[in-house]
Design a protein around this nucleic acid. Sequence first.
DNA 1: CAGTCATTTCGTATTTTTACGAAATACGTT
DNA 2: AACGTATTTCGTAAAAATACGAAATGACTG
Lengths: 98, 98
Amino acid sequence: MSTDVLTDRQKKIARYAKAMAHPVRMYILELLSEQSCCYSGDLAEDLPIARSTLSQHLSELKAAGLIQGEIKPPKIKYCINRENFEEARALMRDFYKL
Amino acid sequence: MSTDVLTDRQKKIARYAKAMAHPVRMYILELLSEQSCCYSGDLAEDLPIARSTLSQHLSELKAAGLIQGEIKPPKIKYCINRENFEEARALMRDFYKL
DNA sequence: CAGTCATTTCGTATTTTTACGAAATACGTT
DNA sequence: AACGTATTTCGTAAAAATACGAAATGACTG
């Protein structure tokens, strides 16, 4: 099918890296990987950005598969998506030959 | 000094991740980390993009500090910037708790 | 069922990224 | 000094990322 020189692996790492490519998103990822879960509101209180902007960053992380949201009315609980986080980790580990 | 909630570490990882956030740049990084050096022309032959576009990607990697160029007339030899590559690796390792 | 809370979606503006071809640069060769 | 080679810079266009406030959503509460 595809005679693309770019491998799926390279595309996957690039995709995960894109999700990590903003300080606010790294802040969220670090927080979640430490304490596993949090609410959008908790983040909004700490971060110097509008709630709507934060929501966009959460969407980006969700689209990349690194986090997932669970509705706990009236809040939404965000957690690391372990499966994909592990994949990202494995890809990074291999790339950096760790 | 800075009462910024975002740490320098988070900003640094985000910066390196941004450089990695494109399949073409991952292709270049993988090639260089395997064989240490190559010329822009070698890459241009393999990749399905214009030479000027490739040059922009090389600039982005250079700006992030992950590679460096050495003039070997009439070519330019690109290599991994070991020091910064190591830093990126260490940051990724810590983040992913490897 | 009107009100409240937490969060997202929408509309929009600005900036950045990605891409190309044409022109410029740098350097060695004839 | 003109020429060829390798690569970059410039000009430009289109797409994506980032940001905000206002409005909408979904779910519980009085």
